[in-house]
Nucleic acid binder design. Structure first.
Lengths: 367, 367
DNA sequence: TTGTAAGCGTTATCAT
DNA sequence: ATGATAACGCTTACAA
């Protein structure tokens, strides 16, 4: 618990770097650098920020002092004085969801370029938490806010957008210059997936839905339904089961489906995690995919292409969406106009779907 | 691009909440609250922080003013004045890795209790980035640092630990009161997994290794090797293939393995992602799991229990590890002693492993 | 080009 | 119990 590597309490915390002067470390201030270099604090500040040109010799002296003292500007003081934090609050529903991971990566990387730092927090699918996290953003004086699947109502979002420009992913909102939505075309994606199944000859296509209070879950259901109707098959509520976007929900829903409609020939799941669960249930029940039942997911999680067999699903270009969001919020901060068109989704046909005879029923489908 | 919901440029940004006074919003300062409540700024500060008892009537007046103006303390100013940011820098190799996700969740949740906010950043498996991120932590004056799988050498870590207490996950370091490691018993985990395979009658057990510059990858290889030797089977370099902890690496390694040693009866992968890749290759080649070849992974990612068949793997209690790390760093910040014992790993036996005759060779294994 | 000085919004140390 | 007042470390007019 104790060893010689730690500073004496009260003593300045200094690194042991070779160039470390007596007062180096994070406690070195801009003023000390100024004094050491024989210039005024403002000059140091100017050099640090490139705010004005400075005589080369002073420039050198300051840079030398900075290196010698291992000086790092205090971000807090800088932000307090300037009024800018160069920080973007990013609210996810769950940092740990495989689904958000790629979005965050896109956001982080695109934000790094203009020099912004994302602050990731998660609200755990909880509206109360969601509001609390937004309050934190305000308290931290973030320069912008990105919301992934906000559940808060639009008036509330509008209100918070007065503090900092806000971009809402996966949702369409009344766009303003402080509030913008980057909608994702879930309806189209779900319709394409369902059409694909229909084209393959499927007629008895089940759907495992997502949480009914999620905008995108509703859109996906609508897409499924509209493809069915457009093909003249008609919507059959008996073929729809409720899921929760989680694997466990998929397991349970598939069990109910199999019990109620053993004749179904395809299952379309509202997201990949649900499909994973449905897949497990089929494995347990000895239902082969795709020989007995075709399966389609939604999202194209990184692992979906490694499922056995690889999952046919609707791909969301999450990384790219993340980048777009980051670029968008930066533009909003800079008061530049942003044009965000709905993100199109594409079907990725892999190996969980199979063509079946146009009007064959169960008995014949089985390989 | 424009609508009525935005404030006139230059006008104070105020929310339209019902109680919103003329000067509400994030620009309201503690001083204004003090003035409105007829007390001094220090009194407001005391009420906000519970630093001292205040007359009930003033307390009420202040609280009323806070509510009326919708006042939120400026975290930056507070931190600058107090010297504490209540912030923990958390460095991961990749925010988007399914592997880190659960750790982050554990960290975030456990940190919320004592009121700390994590700042997640990723270094993308890049040592240069890793150092840059640490510099950012220093610039942000974080109160503590948690590193997930740091690649930097120990002297460097020790140096940074002088700025803020540092906890390194998945690594053992010279513990001090400002630097501590939370080791994970990879060797034991790998040994248990290999022993399991041996007990099931397997003798020709291949191993797909992780990056050779990763401490944990090396430990896992060592565990595999030691279990083999302990059983008198002996280590056969021909059965070891190089992977990279990613699915693609698993695919390629498995291909080479199958070509070189078609007689192998089991494959142990350095992590689950590698196992996913190996599984796919086997699926492609018509090698059945576990009928033809048994497969074991390492990590127990959330999706592993939904693989087909569910993957036998070594479970890391990542969420709990995250919580432990969070609690540990808070204790270090508070200068309390922390005792971190190595995290034990447990084998989760699912359905990708199968008992085979003690000395049967390939031909007989095939179901 | 460079320096002086006034903030930025808090906390914390003194007195009272 | 409460109020002045001096930091905290930086940016930014305003002067020079």
């Amino acid at each position: 618990m104790t060893d010689g590597t730690n500073e004496t309490p009260g003593a300045p915390r200094v690194p042991s770097g070779q160039n470390a002067g007596p007062n180096s470390g994070p406690n070195v201030t801009l003023e000390e650098i100024a004094r050491a270099a024989g210039v005024s604090p403002s000059t140091v500040s100017r050099i640090l920020n490139g705010t004005a040109r400075v005589l080369p010799e002073k420039q050198r002296a300051v840079e030398e002092a900075i290196a010698r003292f291992n000086y790092r500007p205090n971000v807090l003081a800088r932000s307090l004085a300037s009024g800018r934090t160069e920080t973007i609050g990013v609210l996810t529903q769950a940092v740990s969801s495989p689904f958000y991971a790629e979005w965050l990566r896109g956001i982080e990387e695109a934000l790094a370029e203009p020099g912004f730092t994302p602050i990731f927090v998660s609200s755990r699918w909880n509206v109360v938490d969601e509001k609390a996290r937004l309050e934190e953003f305000v308290a931290r004086r973030v320069d912008g806010i990105i919301l992934l699947h906000a559940q808060l109502d639009e008036p509330t979002l509008t209100e918070y957008s007065r503090y900092a420009p806000m971009l809402v992913l996966g949702r369409s909102v009344q766009n303003g210059m402080a509030l913008a939505g980057l909608p994702i075309d879930n309806l189209q994606g779900a319709r394409d997936a369902t059409r694909h199944l229909i084209e393959q000859g499927h007629r008895e296509i089940a759907f495992i839905a997502g949480p009914s209070n999620h905008e995108d879950a509703i859109e996906r259901l609508d897409g499924y339904r509209s493809a069915l109707e457009e093909a003249g098959i008609g919507f059959d509520a008996d073929l729809v089961e409720q899921g929760d976007y989680l694997e466990t929900g998929g397991v349970a829903a598939m069990e109910r489906l199999l019990a109620r409609r053993p004749s179904l020939s395809a299952v379309f799941c509202a997201n990949d995690q649900t499909a994973y669960g449905a897949r497990l249930t089929m494995f347990r029940r000895g239902v082969r995919v795709p020989e007995d039942v075709s399966l389609v997911g939604f999202d194209d999680l990184p692992t979906s292409s490694y499922m056995t067999p690889p999952l046919t699903t609707v791909r969301q270009p999450t990384y790219e969406i993340g980048r777009l969001a980051a670029q968008g919020i930066v533009q909003m901060i800079r008061k530049q106009p942003v044009a965000l068109s709905p993100i199109p989704l594409t079907l990725v046909t892999r190996e969980t779907t199979r063509r079946i005879g146009p009007s064959l029923s169960k008995g014949d489908q089985r390989a």
